[in-house]
């Protein structure tokens, strides 16, 4: 049964990489059931992430947000700060797709705080880029400029000419 769970996870990932997102969802749902059976919270967390990602490409952003929230909750329980940061970044982007910019900002700020704590300059740069865009969408140009300048500083530091 444990091997079956891993096989479902691998199948889900393969369908995902092939662009078969419905099949990816079915496989990851099976993987999730088996992870729960075993109380394997890491596998459960991975299944939530994979399901969130697949729902993004299915255009079902509300479903993606629900799974990313479950990922975030488990990442906190498992005390995995890197995964917590990644979940916040995914939620920020998903709420941008949903055009809910206040919520997008809320999650991008959380991502920024963790990226700073982890001294992840690439993550910090991406958070600032995203925040600049979200504040622009809200017409808050002062905050938008603030984050655009931070993004510029970090991009220069990293030698990211693009």
């Amino acid at each position: 049964r444990a091997a079956q769970g891993r096989a479902y996870g691998n199948l889900g990932n393969t369908h995902y990489l092939l662009g078969n997102f419905r099949k990816a969802v079915s496989s990851h749902e099976q993987r999730l059931l088996i992870a729960r059976e075993f109380g394997d919270r890491s596998a459960e967390r991975r299944a939530y992430s994979n399901l969130g990602n697949a729902f993004i490409f299915l255009g079902e952003f509300e479903m993606a947000a629900e799974y990313y929230k479950k990922t975030l909750q488990l990442a906190r329980q498992l005390k995995d700060r890197a995964v917590e940061a990644q979940s916040c970044y995914s939620l920020g982007n998903t709420y941008t797709l949903l055009q809910d910019y206040e919520k997008a900002i809320e999650y991008h700020l959380k991502h920024l705080a963790i990226a700073q704590e982890l001294r992840d300059r690439v993550g910090e740069g991406r958070a600032c880029w995203s925040l600049g865009n979200a504040y622009t969408a809200l017409g808050n140009h002062e905050e938008a400029v603030h984050f655009a300048e931070k993004h510029l500083d970090i991009s220069r530091e990293l030698g990211d000419r693009n």
Partner: peptide, 26 residues
Amino acid sequence: FQRLRIIQVDSVRRWMDDLKLMTECE
């Protein structure tokens, strides 16, 4: 406004480009 909308989508598009190859492996 239209140009800002395009910029706004860009950071999300970059994320989605990365996401295409992002799988949590067993």
